[in-house]
Design a protein around this nucleic acid. Sequence first.
DNA 1: AAGCTCCCCAACCGCATGAAG
DNA 2: CCTTCATGCGGTTGGGGAGCT
Length: 266
Amino acid sequence: MGRAPCCDKNNVKRGPWSPDEDSVLKSYIETYGTGGNWITLPKKAGLRRCGKSCRLRWLNYLRPDIKHGGFTEEEDEVIYSLYNEIGTRWSVIASRLPGRTDNDVKNYWNTKLKKKLFSSRKTTTMTNPNILSSNYDRGYLAEGPCVPVDLKLQEMTANQTQQFHNKYDTHQALPYYRRTRNDVQPEMCSITSISNSSPAITSVDCKSTTSFCGSMGEGSFCTDHGVQLVWDFINELLVEDETPRFDQPSFPTTDLQSFVNWPMNL
DNA sequence: AAGCTCCCCAACCGCATGAAG
DNA sequence: CCTTCATGCGGTTGGGGAGCT
């Protein structure tokens, strides 16, 4: 048996809030505060709404310090940067953007910023047309300039590229294990870009971007279960480019339990 | 003008967390 | 310690507006 519902769903109104309801909720909270109890608030305020719904409406829309309207370039940068550091912890990201809510940031990321980030890879702030700016592209990178895989392949001769494609399917989905604060989760990724300045590649899975580098903090991933291929991949590409071949990082890459137990802050 | 598709975003859902008893 | 339950959070949904044919 599941948990008891927080309210009687048959007796509460759902869906969009009317201006009258907004006005009632706003004036109640401005007069009496939330009283630290959202569950009883709607009854006291005379609203036929679930407490959760009231809380959401207040926090995401009615609060006086909410900033409505488009995001600025500066806010975009903050989101890129924090997304790369901590992933989809929207409330933490929103806390760094005065007047923005977690819902706002999440919606903005999912509907606009992600697309903007992908399309911008070809055009923005590049000092070299073949190398993406690490500053702009922090959302993807651990550090240093980074080259999309497709561009890297274009640099090779047609014959080399064909041989490479015969050997590797560059768009195949690869399984890996991602470390989070609390556990290790199996996920899938595909490789989108490689760094030519540090032993790092960058991949994009369906949910987020992931750096593949020497650090063992949150977001790093285990190369077991097929992602060994990744290292062959990067070295094969880089060796075409006079870049020294990188050794595999020293952290455990084949034993899942060692990966799980490895200290976060090395 | 009508019908269709796409996109945005407000709102909902269910799970995790932590406080209180 | 265990249980209960309010709160907070991230993922997802769906209504409605905008744009296109």
